[in-house]
Amino acid sequence: MFKAKKFIIWISYPIFVLKYIFAILLPVSFILGLLYGEVKLNFSQILHPNGVYSIILFDIRLPTVISAMLIGILISLSGAILQHLLKNPLVDPYISGTASGGAFGAVLSYFLLAFNLPFSWLVYFQPLIAFITATLATLITVGIGRKGNVYSIVVGGIVVSYIFSSLTTILLIIFQEKYPQIPPLTFWLLGEIEIVGWKDVIILSLLSVLFILLAFKFSRALDLVSISDEISYTHKINPGRQRIFWLLLVSLINAYIVSIAGIIGFIGIIVPHIARRIDGSMRSLSIYSPLIGATIMEFSNIVSRGLFGTIIPLTAITALLASPIILSILVKINDNQRVES
């Protein structure tokens, strides 16, 4: 009884514990990620790889582990920024329809194969088409959610996501037989990070560095837009233009992520929520969201890639992780609304 009480006090302890926990967990997750996968490696194989283990480590395992962290950084920072701009603690690139729209565009681009386009050219068209559909889906969701309460955008996002996911499903059913090299439905709708080669890692790294630097540079402006559009104008900040700029950037980044890893949900909501307990300003979020996002994404990917014997789609894991946290956000919103009215 006494031990339980001590434990509860420890768990609700000051926020600085959070900061250091994730700083330690991140390298731990990195090492675990190198060890665990479809082929279980051990320490000597990591430090002195030879033969087939060298190929596994350098061409598949390392790119996958690093990509998972970078994708975690990008999705969680996207969530933090969208939540600031749209003054809503529930949005992320998944709920805003961006991911589903991107998936639809990515799958739609395979349609070009039907016009005798060689498969290898797809890599240039796919991100472009995914970006267009991702932006379209985001604009529709944001448009639905604008004039309403905090839930309107969630409802709008659910509807938009369902539409695009269904269209994606239909397209895949049509194409699956003729083009077996297209990734299957579970990849697109539920997410899977397995990266072969370093090209994607380089692009993700550049996007991550750019995104973090921009978020940090514009952090004070983003804070102000979050508080009041009116005050923003007196600072010569145009909130509408800010929203368009960041929405486009978030669409671009997440369209790219969806085309290489499918739809990964919930990281964008829960990571900023945790990071906000340290400090909710954008300056802090631009550091701690990436840190926490990379860690959680990496651990989720370790579980996804065969920790329990079989491959589990990512969004299934992140959804379970996120559910208690999302419930606590909803409870908090309801409490606040009851008080205000």
Partner: peptide, 18 residues
């Protein structure tokens, strides 16, 4: 009317470009 984000009051005062 304004939105109340989870930001420290001092960061609210410092928010923006001025």
């Amino acid at each position: 009317e304004f939105y109340s984000p989870n930001i420290k009051a001092k960061d609210v005062i410092l928010a923006g470009k001025k």
